[in-house]
Computed example of a mutant assay.
Amino acid sequence: MLTEGDPAPSVTAPMATPEAARDAERGNYTSDDVAEFDLETVLEDGPVVLAFYPGVYSRTCTRELCELRDWRAELAELDANVYGVSADTPWSLLAFIDEYDLSYPLVSGFNTDVIAEFGVQREDGPLRGIANRAVFVVDPDGTVTYTWSADQPLTFPDTDELATEIRAAGDP
């Protein structure tokens, strides 16, 4: 797993956005509904929060993504882009965004190296290839400034601490 001070990898991956989920009819998604996530490009707008999670529609991940949705709404003044990242396909991510009214994009690690590049990919067992639960803050220069990983299910990062780290990452 990457640590604080490490350069973030230059990654691109398919992305499901709230706009596409809202505009498309659920169950009828096409490749036209899928955007591209490019970390270097989104860093041009300020710090980035990447919240890695195993997969949509699981009990713990659904709770985590909804808590992140609610937390993000409370801290709208933070100058950071928030992205969820999992091994799910972009079409299942679009359906999840639609069903749970998420206001932030979800990045698909399906058939990409984004999860492995951040060092959070499960290497063995029946869920090999999915992401372990982890959060990274990346500053606009592409440096990882904060990391958190879960040791137990239903464990989430301290949002006050995360907010402090996001603010620090945005300060020149």
Score class of each variant (00 low, 15 high):
Pro90Phe: 13
Val34Ser: 01
Glu117Ser: 15
Asn111Gly: 06
Phe136Tyr: 14
Asp98Gly: 07
Thr12Leu: 13
Tyr146Arg: 10
Pro172Asn: 12
Ala168Ile: 01
Glu36Ala: 12
Arg63Ser: 09
Trp148Glu: 00
Glu19Met: 13
Tyr104Phe: 15
Val56Asp: 15
Ala95Ile: 00
Glu19Phe: 14
Pro157Asn: 09
Ile130Lys: 05
Glu123Asn: 12
Phe118Glu: 06
Ala51His: 02
Glu64Asp: 13
Asp38Phe: 02
Gly119Met: 09
Asn111Asp: 15
Ala168Asn: 02
Gly170Met: 07
Tyr57Asn: 13
Arg128Phe: 01
Tyr100Asn: 14
Ala150Thr: 04
Ser86Cys: 02
Arg59Glu: 11
Leu154Val: 03
Leu94Cys: 12
Ala51Ile: 00
Ala169Cys: 11
Leu106Ser: 07
Glu40Gln: 15
Pro9Val: 06
Tyr100Thr: 06
Tyr53Arg: 08
Ile130Ser: 05
Ala73Glu: 07
Pro172Arg: 14
Glu40Arg: 15
Leu162Gly: 02
Ala150Pro: 04
Arg122Tyr: 06
Glu36Trp: 00
Leu50Cys: 04
Ser10Lys: 13
Glu123Cys: 12
Ala116Pro: 03
Ile115Cys: 13
Glu165Ala: 14
Val49Asn: 04
Phe156Thr: 02
Ala131Ser: 11
Trp71Ala: 13
Val114His: 11
Thr12Pro: 06
Ala73Thr: 10
Asp141Phe: 04
Gly109Pro: 04
Asp32Met: 00
Pro54Trp: 03
Gln152Trp: 02
Arg63Thr: 14
Ala16Asp: 05
Tyr146Gly: 08
Asp70Pro: 11
Gly84Tyr: 01
Leu94Arg: 12
Ala73His: 11
Tyr104Cys: 10
